[in-house]
């Protein structure tokens, strides 16, 4: 009896708290199906769901494109980002975790320092640089940075992961005559696949949400991502809240689906960074 009581109170606390957390999202779901006058009533669910909010929102009257176009754009960018990030982060992390070279410690500490560098510090010259090569209003400034190791955080995460793999494997392979490239391709790369999934997921979600770069580099509607298309809704003279909330809700769907499919990787991925100190 006594042992049960704290359990129940814990469950109760958790249920109340979780509901409080997702409450805005439940309201969001309801609101995306409401008519304009209904929008501001304190009810959660509309009396009759207006599914046209979704179809009309998808067609998106103020632009010549439907949302299918914007999703295709965003996915195109994502494919580049994820491939670039996963492949180069694995290569760089292998170098830091397994190879001995001069100034390795120095470069690694520089890498860790860049983790703390605010992005705004480099944004102006980066923009000038991309502008000089006439890459603005293209996906190059959004994709290219991912091909340089995919970001310090991912390199760090993979280095920690590779360090946990026993070195005996490498040594055995060396005796069998494998080169460092062989060790990387045949031993380490297959073994770090779970961590690479984490990198891929985070890259996908963070690039999806990276509104700052998108708003900075993409200017023609033709090339807009989903996030930028959503912003056009706000800039309309009369905001169509129902349609806008419907499309906004759809826009978080890819991240949500990926999150639910690979939920375990999130906690594990972060736990393997071993940030305990």
């Amino acid at each position: 009896m006594n042992a049960l009581r704290p359990r129940w109170s814990r469950h109760l606390a958790l249920i109340v708290f979780s509901l409080l957390m997702v409450y805005p999202i439940i309201w969001w779901l309801g609101a995306s199906l409401k008519t304009a006058p209904e929008m501001n009533l304190p009810t959660i669910w509309p009396s009759t769901p207006i599914w046209e909010n979704y179809s009309a929102g998808w067609d998106f009257s103020p632009s010549p494109h439907t949302f299918a176009h914007f999703y295709a754009n965003t996915l195109l960018m994502e494919v580049g980002n994820v491939i670039g990030g996963v492949v180069t982060a694995a290569i760089v992390a292998f170098g830091f975790a397994r190879l001995k070279f001069k100034f390795r410690g120095f470069w690694f500490s520089i890498l860790l320092m860049t983790l703390m560098l605010p992005g705004q510090v480099t944004i102006v010259p980066q923009y000038i640089l991309f502008n000089r090569f006439e890459f603005t209003d293209s996906y190059v400034p959004l994709i290219l940075p991912h091909f340089f190791g995919g970001g310090a955080f991912f390199i760090f995460l993979l280095v920690q992961f590779i360090r946990g793999i026993p070195k005996d494997l490498d040594e055995a392979a060396t005796i069998d005559g494998a080169s460092v490239y062989g060790i990387f391709l045949r031993i380490i790369f297959p073994l770090i696949k779970p961590a690479l999934v984490t990198v891929a997921i985070f890259t996908f979600i963070w690039s999806w949400d990276d509104f700052f770069s998108q708003v900075l580099y993409l200017s023609s509607v033709d090339k807009f991502t989903v996030g930028l298309a959503l912003r056009m809704y706000i800039d309309q003279f009369e905001v169509q809240w129902g349609q806008m909330l419907a499309m906004a809700l759809l826009s978080v769907l890819p991240s949500a689906v990926i999150f639910f499919l690979a939920q375990k990787h999130f906690v594990e991925g972060i736990a393997t960074t071993g940030i305990k100190g």
Binding site: F17, S18, L19, M21, V22, P24, I25, I205, W206, W208, D209, D210, F211, G227, L230, R231, A248, L249, S251, V252, S255, A256, F259, F266
Partner: peptide, 13 residues
């Protein structure tokens, strides 16, 4: 459920 808001957090949505 608790993590969900953070997942979609940074987005413009």
């Amino acid at each position: 459920m608790v993590y969900f808001p953070s997942l979609i957090g940074g987005s413009i949505a």
